[in-house]
Design a protein around this nucleic acid. Structure first.
Length: 723
RNA sequence: GCGCGGUUAGCUCAGUGGUAGAGCAUUCCGUUGACAUCGGAAAGGCCGUAGGUUCGAUCCCUACACCGCGCACCA
């Protein structure tokens, strides 16, 4: 028995050793690949940089597996395969994680100097970054660590700031006083994709407002309301003229209200009449803009009422609601209350705090012209989606894009290279940090904008940044990349931004194919969550069953874009498969030690078996080329176990024994030929099988290859089998 | 309200215009050398409902039902 093929297969003993061997070979870097590859084309995948703020979860394992399969397959096919890893500082996300830690320690970021907070989060992130990198290695990722980038690397920061300046100069970024999503807990604005909408039941109040009855769900914002609006075509109110003034009694005394006719009013909604609060509502703000109306802030940044609320000033808005209704009731201004009303509120996607719309000066990206670039690329078929129905979602977002707020009031991020004048509000974009510009209007010294960029602003440029746009050698060689593999939840968050920045900055799409995977759910198909206690940790699974087993379990039966139910049994089954292959290898080696060269003759039966093998190779290769890894994996599994092991090996056993023969009438020489044909055939099938399986189960296949070739070559760079 | 996806074996999921597939689970049988992390066999499905197209539909079209997800300025 071959002494290296101990039984059973031991992933723990093997994986670390094999990974070190791969890394030492230098072949993760395509520039070091053998000559065969240097003649090939590049094949490039950019890794969605994992957040450097915690452990890898099952979703990470899935994307690492898929991207590694791509990379290993194309590397074996002779491409200069490059998979560029990264780490994301994950601005707001990480700051939220860190703030939770501060809270536990009884501290708060609002009592800290920004520099100290930044330094603490940096230490925290760097510690997590190396943890994350170790876990990516453990998954067997054959990415080029020499090209790894962190989203806060100095060159990244500088390039992102240059992009901001360029967009500003091109009129694609402006500073505007607009309605933004404000999280009162985290004290920052958020983009629309950083909020979640939730349905809630809330009373719908009807108040007497002069001659009108108005409807609202937010009485607490109504103090300053002095415009009453209705649809211009609403016959019920045809006697009131646009601009008409009406004196009426309101919360804190008499008010002179102005009638505004605007089409934003829904005649079906409530009474068709409402008052507007431009500073705390998107619709109201837009109506005010259209008619050039004024407004004022009613709720402060902490979510408390401002002095306009009179005796209720300083009260949290949640507590103030009933008080205001009581007050209106005492003035006989409440007409009725509908208790069974449901509406939708936006919440902070991290802390679930209700978002307060606020008016604030921020930097915005003008999305329409950029989105049009993306739509054009789609129309020209420069971009394809797997599964293809994701294209519709992408297109919808591009056709309905709204300007993107990129200012965040947090320290953990890339500083916005801008200066502001506190006196007159003038802003100035300046890349030179040492500069201390003066206001062009009032000549006063300007203040550095303390805000940082939304992380999507930098990660949107990721394919460019990791290839060292615009002057780096990699940009010339490896950009545009080939495939962007990421979760389908990012189809309208990250993907469009990469497409847009790619088209805007480099005039080319950053990748031609978007491959989207689904969520990894628990065995019953339920979303994993800490509160449900059904989170499956990948490290536990790999500890128990080996990395190869987890990888295979994540791929088999997992169609692109579809969520996956991951069960321990499934992984266990694949551990059995790895062991099966291991035992096959031992059997073949034990029975073919004497001769591996092509024998004098191959029996017709063996020819048929090899022909069948070639058919399997052809079919599997077709699946790989069509990005149908789930089918390829299943077919390899089936071939190895139920064809190779169950049938071929079993049928060959008699032929392999000394002094035995499948053709008893033959001479001793015939019997040797027959045995050698069998040995050769087994060996060919084993080597081919191991190659086919390598992208999926890299560790066990490489280990077997090392034993087969006595350490003289690496399976990782072997040619993919020909059919 | 709009959009997207799903509905196939007990479970998790593939798949195809021409008699339905895998893994796991179940039942029965089988262990002297590759492997019990095994082998052999069996059982199990009017492919969500109703129409339509077709010689033929689980597959294509329409409607509906249910499940999941996403979006939304409904005061």
């Amino acid at each position: 028995m071959n002494e290296k093929l101990t039984k059973p297969y031991d992933p723990k003993e093997t994986e670390g050793r094999i990974y070190k061997m791969w890394e030492k070979s230098g072949f993760f870097n395509p520039d070091n690949l053998p000559e065969r590859h240097q003649l090939g084309k590049p094949f490039v995948i950019v890794m969605p940089p994992p957040n450097a703020n915690g452990d890898l979860h099952a979703g990470h394992s899935l994307f690492i597996t898929l991207e590694d399969i791509f990379t290993r397959y194309y590397r074996m096919k002779g491409y200069r395969a490059l998979w560029i890893p990264g780490a994301d500082h994950a601005g707001f996300e990480t700051q939220v994680v860190y703030e939770k830690q501060l809270e536990k320690e009884g501290r708060s970021r609002f009592n800290m100097e920004p520099e100290d907070l930044y330094r603490e989060i940096l230490d925290f992130t760097l510690a997590n970054k190396s943890n994350m990198e170790r876990q990516v290695r453990e998954m067997g990722a054959s990415c080029d660590w020499s090209r790894e980038k962190f989203t806060l690397d100095a060159d990244v920061v500088a390039e992102v700031q240059r992009t901001f300046k360029k967009m500003y100069d091109d009129g694609l970024i402006y500073r505007g006083l607009r309605i933004i999503n404000w999280c009162p807990k985290h004290q920052t604005s958020l983009s629309d994709v950083e909020t979640v909408s939730e349905e809630q039941r809330t009373p719908f109040y009807y108040f007497k407002y002069g001659p009108f009855e108005i409807g609202t769900t937010r009485p607490e914002t109504k103090f300053g309301d002095k415009y009453v609006t209705m649809h211009p075509d609403d016959v019920r109110y045809k006697d009131y003229q646009h601009g008409q003034k009406i004196l009426l009694e309101w919360i804190n005394g008499p008010v002179e209200a102005t009638v505004i006719k605007d089409e934003a009013n829904d005649m079906e909604m409530g009474t068709g009449v409402m008052t507007i609060t431009p500073y705390h509502s998107q619709v109201d703000f837009e109506i005010a803009e259209r008619h050039n109306l004024d407004g004022e802030q009613i709720i402060d940044w902490r979510g408390r009422l401002l002095p306009i609320a009179g005796e209720l000033a300083g009260m949290k808005i949640g507590d103030a609601r009933e008080k205001i209704v009581d007050k209106l009731r005492s003035k006989a201004l409440v007409t009725r209350v509908d208790e069974n009303y449901t509406n939708v509120v936006k919440k902070c996607y991290k802390c679930n705090t209700v978002i307060e719309p606020q008016v604030k000066e921020q930097w915005f990206v003008k999305m329409k012209p950029l989105a049009e670039l993306a739509i054009a690329a789609l129309d020209k078929k420069e971009l394809t989606f797997i599964p293809d129905h994701q294209e519709k979602v992408f297109r919808y977002w591009m056709e309905n894009s709204i300007d993107w707020n990129i200012s965040r009031q947090i320290v953990w991020g890339i500083p916005i290279p801008a200066w502001l004048c506190d006196d007159c509000g003038t802003s100035h974009v300046e890349l030179d940090i040492a500069a201390t510009p003066k206001c062009s209007k009032c000549d006063k010294a300007m203040r550095r904008d303390a805000d940082t960029f939304d992380t999507w602003f930098s990660s949107g440029q990721w394919p460019l940044l990791v290839t060292n746009y615009p002057d780096g050698q990699d940009f010339g060689t490896y950009y545009p990349t080939d495939i962007m593999e990421t979760g389908h939840d990012l189809v309208f968050k990250w993907v469009p931004r990469m497409v847009i920045f790619g088209l805007y900055l480099s005039k080319r799409v950053p990748f031609h194919t978007v491959y989207m995977h689904g969520l990894v759910n628990d065995a019953q198909g339920r979303k994993m969550s800490k509160s449900k206690g059904n989170v499956i940790s990948p490290s536990q699974l790999t500890d128990k069953f080996g990395t190869d087993a987890l990888r295979m379990a994540l791929v088999i039966g997992n169609t692109p874009g579809t969520d996956l139910a991951l069960s321990e049994d499934k992984v266990k089954g694949q551990k059995h498969f790895a062991n099966k292959l291991w035992n096959i290898a031992r059997f073949v080696l034990d029975n073919s030690a004497e001769e591996t060269a092509k024998p004098r003759s191959i029996t017709p039966g063996d020819e048929a078996i090899l022909k069948n093998l070639r058919a399997a190779v052809e079919s599997i290769t077709a699946h790989m080329d069509n990005n149908r890894f789930y089918l390829a994996a299943e077919e390899i599994y089936h071939y190895i176990w139920h064809e190779f092991a169950d049938k071929i090996i079993e049928e060959m056993k008699p032929r392999l024994r000394e002094g035995d023969s499948a053709s008893p009438g033959g001479s001793a020489e015939d019997r040797v030929d027959n045995r050698q044909s069998a040995q050769y055939t087994l060996r060919v099938i084993l080597e081919t099988s191991v190659k086919l399986l390598h992208p999926f189960m890299p560790f066990v296949t490489e280990e077997i290859w090392q034993i087969l070739r006595e350490g003289k070559s690496l399976l990782m760079v072997e040619p993919w089998p020909q059919s």
